[in-house]
Computed example of a mutant assay.
Amino acid sequence: MDRLIQNYLIDLFADNGIALEADEDWLLTEGEDFPAIRGIWHEDKEGGMGRLDIDIVLDEERTIEESFGGIGKGKEGCRDALDSFARNDFHVVLAACWHTVNGRKLGVRELVAGGQRFTAYIGDFTLRGEKDAPMEIPEDGLSALEAAIATAPLTGDVHWIRVFYGNVGDGKNQVEVLLDNEPWAAGHKAIASVDWPQHERYYSLRNFIALLPAD
């Protein structure tokens, strides 16, 4: 499975103008130690959804840690999880870590947080499940999160935010918002306050944002 993951990532980056080469488990840009990326697939022993962990090392002290569920067994599930990474995080990661920005695939704007200016690379909210239902992202979905970012005590480093919203049905939901891999209460409150579309069947929305100190 490691070969499948590495080949997928090499091709994905190559399609966007970045050449990566393998160094044991990691993929690196030639001549550079950072950033480095790897993927690890975990098959569910009970036949449920497997999990793909993506690690992106920014420097000797900081690593972006993301996980994606994969529907299917073996290679099928792993490819499904890799496709989720490509749809959701990839273009944000490409911009923030490899400095290659595709303006058609993400939003770019300036934000102020903790008295510092940041360039925000904002991915789309990606939908999983409930594919037959029309899905419009509420206008305040992103603005509520930006308001929380503005009050966050951020340092002058790279920061990243992952948002997950799951509609369980019967008015119930799941919300998880991470800032730099850790649960973020203010972000959770912001996302939970939004009037997300309600459906009888399960669906989830996921979003990834990177913040880089502005020059």
Rank of each mutant, 00 (worst) to 15 (best):
E139N: 09
I37K: 00
L12R: 11
L127C: 06
E60P: 04
E182K: 13
A22R: 11
A147Y: 08
Y203N: 08
E21S: 10
L179S: 05
A185P: 13
D11I: 07
I64Q: 04
G72T: 10
F90P: 00
G107F: 08
V177P: 01
I71G: 04
W160D: 02
A36W: 01
W26R: 05
E32F: 11
G141L: 04
I71K: 11
D55W: 01
K131L: 12
W41V: 03
R62W: 08
I64Y: 01
I191W: 01
F118I: 04
D15I: 01
Q116E: 12
G107W: 04
E32L: 14
I5R: 01
E176I: 08
I10C: 04
D195R: 15
A210S: 10
T126G: 11
H188F: 11
C97W: 00
R87D: 13
W160K: 07
R162W: 04
G123W: 02
P35N: 06
G72E: 12
T100N: 14
W160M: 05
D53Y: 14
G156K: 14
D132C: 05
R51F: 11
D11E: 12
R38P: 02
R109V: 07
D83P: 02
F164G: 07
F13A: 00
R104Q: 15
F125S: 15
G123I: 07
A186D: 12
D89M: 09
A133S: 15
D180H: 07
F13K: 02
